[in-house]
């Protein structure tokens, strides 16, 4: 009898490690839930495993029948072939890296600064036009760059921005997702009384913004940092950039992938290189991002 009890306690401990304990939970339900998630998780990572494996496959394994999913004799030849392909182009490889870094850093910095400033005013001050602006921002979440591509191209070409770095940078600064998340996060994490107290003490609005608000919304601007790095890193700009010297890294690399069957391995290696940085940033900042997302809901 006593032994049986002990075992039960042990089992309970194990299940507590994997599951969130709570009433109204049956163990079978928990197990089914976990197995189901593993199955779905497999569907999700399967193509990614395929990329990793292909990136390390030697030529003969890439064209083997039947195809094996996992690599047998891993090699770095696909990665070295990228650098060979890259060194034959007349623009040095470091130039593409500089382009991407420059565009990403400038756009991220100004996006976080200007969108936060606007979010602060929109959330914490009352002025005519505030509600109108807030509603437009929610609506504009749907109008992603993919949808507004053509009319945007017309505007950018009228402004003479085509084929400059600015065409990649400036539109991103004004993207609405970052501002929206920041604004929602401010509404839930900054008490109005704190701001009033600071105003009574005679702090200027800019001072309140830089000294009180920004340190408090760190999770939100880390989230903006992540989404910004993600989208700037993944940007090819292939419809707006034409000179080789201004192309971002992703554009240059994606040209390798279009080289056909013979470059299959190199294409997989390129894809792997493109996936890793955003994924790493996400893994490192996941808990901050989820903190920010907690306030992302649209309030009626």
């Amino acid at each position: 009898m006593e032994q049986a009890k002990q075992i039960d306690v042990k089992k309970l401990k194990v299940s507590k490690k994997v599951f969130n304990p709570g009433p109204a939970r049956s163990r079978t339900g928990n197990v089914i839930n976990f197995l189901f998630l593993c199955l779905v998780g497999f569907f999700m990572v399967f193509p990614l495993i395929f990329i990793v494996s292909n990136a390390f496959k030697p030529m003969d394994e890439l064209f083997m029948f039947p195809q094996k999913m996992l690599v047998r004799n891993p090699t770095l030849s696909n990665f070295t072939s990228i650098s060979i392909l890259m060194s034959s182009s007349w623009v040095p490889f470091s130039r593409y890296i500089f382009n991407t870094l420059f565009v990403t850093i400038v756009a991220t910095f100004f996006h976080i600064l200007l969108a936060s400033l606007a979010a602060y005013v929109l959330e914490k001050r009352e002025f005519p036009g505030r509600n109108f602006m807030s509603q437009i921002i929610v609506l504009s979440l749907m109008f992603t760059p993919a949808v507004t591509g053509i009319p945007n191209y017309i505007i950018q070409s009228k402004l003479g921005m085509i084929d400059t770095y600015w065409v990649l940078i400036i539109p991103y600064i004004g993207s609405s997702m970052g501002l929206y998340l920041m604004k929602q996060f401010m509404s839930s994490s900054i008490p109005n009384t704190l701001l009033e107290a600071a105003r009574i003490d005679g702090a200027s609005e800019l001072r309140i913004f830089t000294r009180i608000v920004m340190p408090l919304v760190k999770p939100a601007w880390l989230t903006m940092l992540m989404t910004s790095v993600q989208s700037m890193w993944g940007m090819t700009g292939n419809t707006v950039i034409f000179s080789e010297a201004k192309k971002p890294l992703n554009y240059a690399l994606s040209q390798i992938g279009t080289g056909g069957v013979a470059r299959q391995g190199a294409a997989a290696a390129v894809t792997l290189i493109m996936i890793i940085p955003p994924l790493l940033v996400f893994i490192l900042s996941q808990s901050r991002i989820l903190d920010t997302m907690a306030s992302s809901g649209i309030k009626e």
């Binding site: 890193w233 992703n250 996936i275 996400f282």
Partner: peptide
């Protein structure tokens, strides 16, 4: 995922979210 414990949850969230941040990975 919410039914899982925090550590397992973090891994699962990363796995599920990975495809959408992998940008051009659908070329695979």
């Amino acid at each position: 995922i919410n039914e899982l414990s925090p550590k397992v949850r973090a891994v699962m969230v990363t796995i599920m979210y990975a495809p959408s941040i992998s940008g051009g990975a659908y070329a695979i």
